[in-house]
Design a protein around this nucleic acid. Structure first.
Length: 115
DNA sequence: CCACTGACTACTT
DNA sequence: CAAGTAGCCAGTG
């Protein structure tokens, strides 16, 4: 029978790439929205990443907590997941700075020790 | 199909 | 560092 992609071909490949990228993030590492979007093939799609997380994280098992903004900070407001994300990251070995920021030079996926 | 929204980013003041 | 402005693009109503 003919091979049909079927299955969620309603969404753009970009959207699906985001899911793949996020699921590919190793523990103890993080990625910025812009980075995920770039790896997905759309360096301008940072905003879409957040949207996808909202829509897909419910049905997919996405480690959304490994996604932070370009400043290495959690974008979620307090009481809306901020503390949850922070807890999940710390549980994976990600340390936070005194200013609630993550050292991207150390934890950003693909980044070295910063040296 | 049009309008609005949004877990963003970068630049400027 | 904070606030304002602009660009960006897919999901939802």
């Amino acid at each position: 029978m003919e091979i049909k992609p079927k299955k969620s071909d309603k969404i753009h490949p970009f959207t699906r790439n985001i899911l793949a990228v996020i699921q590919a993030i190793p523990e103890g590492c993080v990625l910025s929205y812009g980075r995920v979007a770039a790896l997905a093939g759309n360096p301008r799609g940072a905003r879409q990443v957040s949207r996808i997380l909202h829509s897909m994280s419910r049905k997919h098992d996405l480690p959304w907590h490994r996604v932070v903004n370009a400043s290495g900070r959690i974008s979620l407001p307090r009481g809306r997941g901020y503390e949850l994300q922070k807890a999940l990251l710390e549980s994976e070995g990600v340390h936070f700075s005194p200013s609630h920021t993550i050292d991207l030079s150390v934890y950003l996926w693909g980044a070295d020790t910063g040296v």
